[in-house]
């Protein structure tokens, strides 16, 4: 039991033939090189190194402006495969250009099949939930054969954690410093992506590596647009001790605030529904960005609202299971 959960629930493991059933099945190749300038305890990097181990080095990562842009600072790169930085808005279009150019060369016999690459877009939530949405929508509409990995640290973290379209309600950010925190609500990117009916959409988190591995393995085996959102606990932006990253990730799942799920063939499946959801407070109180909900006095209304939204979400899930 790695995180207070049972192993993969029966109902979603039946059809899936996976090599990743237990922690010890996970690869330990650690393809992603050390030495990156990411913050100590980065939950995004945690997910990316796991994803990279599954995808392998026959990949080209097409990046948009964000924290991970600094993975490659001349002359250093942690990747054993390739990388292309584009701009904040247009990484999926970069993926389109690379994929099309690879296909053109494959068709003309200029490169062999074993020289082909998996094209992977890597962006933060600022690009995925906001500026890059048009180009992402375009790439999905084209049926582009690519994987999109969004490391979602719920803010414009690279510039100091300003509010982004992925910031949760009530969180303090460097542009939401009032008593109520961020007044908006986190955009449902999973639903927006799924509405395009792509090949695959999944939420993951680096603190649930078996679930993550199985989903990346599945995505790798499919063709077309495959989109992954990785919640990425961010010690710097969320204001917690770097050693807490994994614990906070576990709590995100355990409290139900970050539902692990996947979309395929028109159907959404929750891969790790918490058996008994912990109160969302347990997740919030560990992070400085929510400290104003507890100190100097508890903001009962806001806490109740956040809990109610999580409850509503899961009530909806249960309802859809019953019907």
């Amino acid at each position: 039991m790695e995180s207070g959960f049972l192993e993969v629930p029966e109902e979603m493991s039946d059809e899936t033939i996976t090599v990743y059933k237990h922690m010890k099945d996970l690869p330990s190749s650690r393809l992603l090189g050390a030495g990156t300038p990411m913050c100590a305890g980065c939950g995004g990097l945690l997910a990316i190194h796991q994803i990279y181990d599954i995808l392998g080095e026959k990949t080209v990562f097409v990046n948009a402006a964000g924290c991970m842009t600094l993975l490659t600072v001349y002359p250093h790169t942690p990747f054993r495969g390739s990388w292309l930085y584009t701009a904040m808005a247009s990484a999926p279009a970069g993926a389109q250009g690379v994929r099309d150019a690879l296909d053109v060369q494959l068709a003309r016999g200029r490169i062999k099949a074993d020289e082909d690459l998996q094209v992977v877009v890597l962006t933060g939530d600022g690009a995925a939930y906001g500026m890059g949405m048009s180009s992402t929508s375009g790439a999905i509409e084209q049926g582009l054969d690519f994987i999109y990995v969004c490391y979602d640290n719920e803010g414009y973290a690279n510039t100091g954690q300003q509010s982004s379209p992925a910031t949760p309600h009530g969180a303090r950010t460097s542009t939401s410093t009032g008593a109520q925190g961020f007044g908006g609500y986190k955009k449902d990117l999973f639903a927006i992506w799924a509405a395009h009916r792509p090949a695959y959409v999944a939420t993951v988190i680096g603190t649930e590596p078996v679930d993550l591995a199985r989903k990346i393995e599945k995505a790798k085996g499919l063709k077309g647009p495959r989109l992954i959102i990785a919640l990425s606990p961010c010690p710097t932006g969320w204001d917690f001790d770097p050693r807490e990253t994994v614990e906070i990730g576990h709590l995100a799942v355990k409290t139900g605030i970050w539902p692990l799920k996947e979309y395929e063939n028109g159907k959404v499946t929750h891969t790790r529904p918490p058996s008994r959801r912990a109160p969302v407070e347990e997740y919030l109180e560990k992070q400085g960005r929510f400290a104003h909900l507890f100190h100097p006095r508890r903001n009962e209304a806001l806490l109740a609202e956040i809990q109610a939204r999580v409850d509503d979400y899961w009530a909806g899930v249960e309802e859809s299971h019953l019907t």
């Binding site: 080095e57 842009t69 600094l70 490659t72 600072v73 001349y74 790169t77 990747f79 054993r80 495969g81 390739s82 990388w83 292309l84 930085y85 584009t86």
Partner: peptide, 8 residues
């Protein structure tokens, strides 16, 4: 491997 358009 090629890393293109990187930061400096």
């Amino acid at each position: 491997p090629v890393s293109q358009g990187v930061a400096v």
